[in-house]
Each structure stands twice: as C-alpha cells, then as structure tokens.
C-alpha cells in the first residue's frame, strides 16, 4: 500500500509533457470604479481550468472586488462600474447577450459567513436546481441533492435529517451546505470569498480537504487572508495590492521565492 502511494506520488511528480493547463477564465485590463474611487487598476489574470487559484493581499487591495467581477456580483452595486475584458471559456461575460442568472449558475459563489436559506437542508440544496429547471421530478431532485451533499462531504452527517432547518447545523456544516448548494446547479467555476474565516480549525480542515477534492471537477478561485491556507489549497497564487495585481505564479514559487519585493514583504509579515 505504501509502495503504491509512492509510485503514485512519483507518477504525479512527472512533468506533464509540457502541455499548459487550459485557461478557464481570463481577465484583461479589468478596472473597477466605485463612484469616483478606482478599486482595480487594470488586472490581467488567467484562471486555469480545474485548478485552485488563491487571491491574497491586504484588506482593501481589490481581491474581493476582482472575485466579484468573475460572476458579475458587482452588478448588484449601483455605483460600481467595470471596464476591461472578462471571459469564461473565451466568451465575454459582460456582453449584452449574457444572461447574468445563467452566468452565476456556471460561476457559483460561497461567501465568508455561511448563509443558508432559512429553509430545510433539502430545500437549501434543491433551490438552485429547481429555479434553473435542472431536475425533472422528485426522484431526480433527490438524486441531485444527495450527490451535491456527498460531494460537499456533508451527506453522512445530514442524511437522516434533511427536513431540519439548515440554520440548525454547526458553522462548518453550514459552510459545507452552502458549498453543496453552489455545486447543485453544476457550476464550472466556484468562487470562494474567505470561506473558512468563521470556522474553527477542524471545520477549516474539512473545507480545505473538500476544496482539494472539488478541483478534480471544478475551477476554484478563493480569496483568503490566511496565507497558510492559500499555500495549502491552491496551485496558483496571485498577490493584490492597492488595486493592482503585483504578482501571480505557482503557489510554491510565490511562497518560497516571490519575485516582487511587495509580495515578499506581505507574505513574510514585513508589510508596514
């Protein structure tokens, strides 16, 4: 068994034949203004398919603003104005022809504080598929709910109380319920804004393990203040500062040998 694992580890370590991972989402010159204030100053960033991209940086650096551009959540803020190009599979997501509700089904989101609907666990997960018409009949819906809860690593804990309110779960369970809810509509990209900041270390470890499993099927972009978390869960890390993206690279490189002084200052805690 040990030998098997080692063989696998060696196989994983082999170079992947030089094939660059596909780009799922692409940002070019993305600027965001909140009224007169410019929050993002022209961001160029590729989000790679089926990888975890972590966005790090001090408060107010624009990382959450950028995350919210990826599924047009900034549309909900009246004074917000977005410029530049943002694509999903090469398609401009700010194009007039885009249905924002459809877009957000493809690019789901999990927030900082677990925010289950004040409904049953079952209804929390089935809500999305229901309004998007993704399940024909009760059996199919049962299946979607079970599969989503399983993928979110919550099924075994809640399968006997699906009719109980989602708000009655623990914080970590609630967050996994929110992830199940996001997964239920079969998104391609999942955006996570500080998904563990309200959770204890064990619940955090569960979510991190879940993120690692989910990346087999989903592209994930995570904003986190916890640099160790970024280091643990992501393959790529982008450092934001004062509305600019200072540096992006393989996570290992960013945390062992960042090229920009500002990145180094931030991750080593020298940020004045």
């Amino acid at each position: 068994m040990v030998a098997q694992t080692q063989i696998q580890a060696r196989a994983d370590a082999r170079p992947q034949g030089g094939v660059a991972p596909a780009v799922k989402m692409e940002a070019r010159g993305v600027k965001v203004f909140y009224g007169a204030k410019q929050a993002l100053k022209g961001i160029d960033l590729d989000v790679r398919d089926r990888q975890v991209t972590a966005l790090i940086g001090p408060s107010g650096c624009g990382k959450s603003t950028f995350l919210r551009c990826l599924n047009r959540m900034n549309d909900t803020i009246d004074i917000a104005r977005v410029e530049g190009l943002m694509t999903l599979d090469g398609q401009d997501i700010y194009d007039r022809s885009i249905d924002v509700v459809q877009l957000r089904a493809r690019v789901g989101m999990v927030f900082q504080k677990p925010n289950p609907f004040p409904k049953s666990i079952y209804d929390n997960v089935s809500y999305g598929p229901k309004i998007h018409g993704l399940a024909a009949g009760k059996d199919e819906m049962d299946e979607v709910v079970e599969k989503s809860l399983q993928r979110a690593g919550l099924w075994n804990e809640v399968k006997d109380r699906l009719r109980e309110p989602g708000t009655g779960l623990s914080g970590g369970q609630q967050q996994r319920l929110c992830i199940a809810r996001a997964i239920a509509v079969s998104p391609e990209v999942i955006l996570m804004d500080e998904p563990c900041s309200a959770l204890d270390p064990i619940a955090t470890a569960h979510i991190e393990e879940l993120i690692d499993e989910l990346r087999a099927n989903y592209t994930i972009v995570i904003v986190t203040h916890n640099m160790q978390q970024a280091a643990r869960v992501s393959q790529r890390t982008a450092f934001f500062h004062l509305g600019e993206m200072v540096e992006v690279g393989d996570t290992e490189e960013i945390f062992t040998n960042p090229h920009d002084e500002r990145t180094q200052g931030y991750i080593t805690g020298r940020y004045g």
């Binding site: 500062h241 004062l242 002084e261 500002r262 180094q264 200052g265 931030y266 080593t268 805690g269 020298r270 940020y271 004045g272």
Partner: peptide, 13 residues
C-alpha cells in the same frame, strides 16, 4: 509598499 527589514512582529525578527 517597500519591504522594510523588520517584521511587523518584532519578536520573530
């Protein structure tokens, strides 16, 4: 943001 030589947490430095 220049990277000053001292850590915010001085005891670490």
């Amino acid at each position: 943001m220049p990277a000053p030589d001292t850590h915010t947490v001085k005891s670490f430095a």
